[in-house]
Nucleic acid binder design. Structure first.
Lengths: 203, 203
DNA sequence: ATTGTAACTTATCAACTGATAACTTATCGG
DNA sequence: CCGATAAGTTATCAGTTGATAAGTTACAAT
């Protein structure tokens, strides 16, 4: 592993990647963001370290900070990039529950799933403030608008609550392994209840 | 504020608390655990600091570590102490949904609420492992046993998922303030869906 | 009254965190 | 070819974290 900011001066890493890599700020930024997403999704904000993200992107921490200003800045940009609901909101209303369930349970550890882990940021920390804003703007608000009255916001929050809970207990917490039956039961339960919220605007 | 381990040598704090406080290991342990609960509930595990907990309990960090071995040990004991479902599992089955909703939304920031924040510990950190074990033993398992077949575990997880989500979006994330209508709608939704899971064992 | 022991603290550590200043090097238009 | 500028790095810092060794002080039984 090529590591920067550690005791390994001068080594260029030509063995692992034959090309010393061209200089391309945009591509580098993208690599950093990708690394940030995967690291922030796996550990909590406080546990995730700038050094690990930088190493995973094959960059020095300095460059990372130069591009994103601070760890918090990187966090915000990484979250914003996920645009959680984008695709799912395109599906027909009648299949929304099913579509969201599949997106949450089968997504390849990227895209939507991490977004639901945003709340895992913390309580009153700087990270929580950022996470709350992003969640509000990119998930709750669009979902509420899509749902429409009555009680748009409450219903959006209910869906978000179920989604966060589902991901938490199926993919995030290292609980004792679930059986296929358990997963199937939960998926069906989730899809149906979400769909009810979508359909039953008038309760 | 009396602070230990900082630059304030020799000050005994006699002004704020006239009695220099008797030596009582059990009471001191209890004070530490209480402080730990409130701090761990407010910030994430990684953000919570041993020093803050110790200060809040009016003790030195050394004593805290002497009693609980390590930060992780303190975390585990503090979580275990919450015994989340205890009271709620005593209510009649027909009112379980309502009872749980009230416990979650009206609890004075202590008792149950923090327990549902356990998952906020992190991803693959040491804290997450501890949190998962406690959650499994003190919440999922007893709840599943109480629910009974069929699909006891899946149904328990579904309830836990909703509960975690509800707390997350009403009390934990610093989202834009909810209206009373929103809260009421969510509470009713939560109570009814939990009750359905309790009743409809056979789907 | 003395003393043994439990309760509790002070002083200190090594490791790690995010961040900054100052340097080097590749790339590209003229 | 060249030199300006962006892309990238090394070295380093000050602050904080959890943890430890060595001490001090209160209390309770003899």
């Amino acid at each position: 592993m090529v590591s920067y900011n550690t005791a390994n001066p001068g080594y260029q890493g030509r063995m692992t990647s034959p090309q010393p890599r061209k200089r391309d700020a945009q591509a580098t930024k993208a690599r950093i963001l990708e690394a940030a997403q995967s690291v922030f999704a796996r550990t909590s904000y406080a546990d995730a370290g700038i050094r690990e993200i930088a190493a995973r992107a094959g960059v020095s921490t300095t460059l990372l900070l130069q591009y994103f200003g601070s760890k918090a800045g990187l966090y915000e940009e990484a979250l914003n990039l996920l645009v959680p609901l984008g695709d799912v909101l395109q599906t027909p209303r009648a299949q929304f529950g099913q579509a969201l369930a599949e997106a949450l349970l089968h997504s390849g550890d990227q895209k939507i799933r991490p977004t639901l882990m945003i709340p895992l940021a913390g309580g009153d920390s700087e990270a929580a403030t950022i996470a709350a804003r992003v969640m509000e703007e990119r998930a709750i608000a669009p979902l509420a608008a899509w749902l429409g009255p009555p009680n748009a916001r409450a219903r959006a929050l209910e869906i978000a609550a179920m989604a966060t809970g589902l991901v938490t207990y199926t993919a995030y917490l290292p609980l004792r392994a679930h059986t296929g039956q358990d997963i199937a039961h939960m998926a069906a339960w989730f899809a149906q209840n979400v769909q009810t919220i979508v359909d039953n605007g008038a309760d």
